[in-house]
Amino acid sequence: MTLLWRRPTTLDGAIEELASDDAAIYAGGVSLVLLMNLGLFEPATLVSLAAVPGLAAVTGDDEAVDLGAMCTHARLAADPILRRTHPAAADMFAGIGNVRVRSWGTLGGNLAHADPAQDPPVMLAALHGTVSVVGPRGDRVIPVEAIAEGPLSPALDPDEIVTSVRLPLAEERSGSSYLKYLPGTKDDYATVSIGAHLQFDRAGAVRQARLVAGAVGPTVVVLGAGSEVLTGHPLDPDVLDALRVAVRDEVNPSSDRRGSADYKREMAGIVAARAASACRPASARP
């Protein structure tokens, strides 16, 4: 079977090309060629988005920033707008994989890869991100955490294309953090990762909390119970410990090379507490 390479210059053109059998979107190539190299994926046609205009921009308005799906991780890590509006997200992008992955891997490719151990879906879901998708049956917007149905199974039709991610601007007195627990080598996916976004009231109590965990399930997990524990309380040690217990009891990981189910569950609680603690706005930190 010979592989065909298509390089449409419009989104509609790309959607059309994707209609052929076993066609796949080619963004940066890192995840896709990796699967091809391992013999796990053999597409018939690759549809490059490189020549489709307008997919690699970062734009902001007074409600949100929009991150183009074809932006590379390195581009986002260095983006002045994102760095100002969502510094924790910019830091997260700066810590993905290795420098070569960051040079070529794209936001859209990463989300469509639907790997629950990847960093972006965890942090971006914590920041209430939404994904814009276009396709032959119309456009839609889905929350970041809903983009995956399971490992390597995106909740997208094969001819749908991720075009951007929208992150609402952070509220006043809020803080975000992303913690990746790497007990072995620094060059690895997380054993557990937590994205946290906390909003505080004037007194320093948590008004609203959103915590999302990675690598503890088939998809990223929005920690409902964990967030509930924090709401209405300052981040004192008792509350953080209650958070640890709540998160531990909420997640249901399976064992993998990076940790047993038991260990991941316990670590999710500990890392969640540490991530929440790192969300304190600078003024509120001891």
């Binding site: 990796l34 391992l38 072995g184 080598t185 620094k186 060059d187 690895d188 090379r257």
Partner: peptide
């Protein structure tokens, strides 16, 4: 074999 690539069979890197 489960750890079938250097993505899963990890070797120490310079940061370690």
């Amino acid at each position: 074999l489960v750890t079938a690539s250097l993505g899963d069979y990890k070797l120490a890197c310079i940061g370690d």
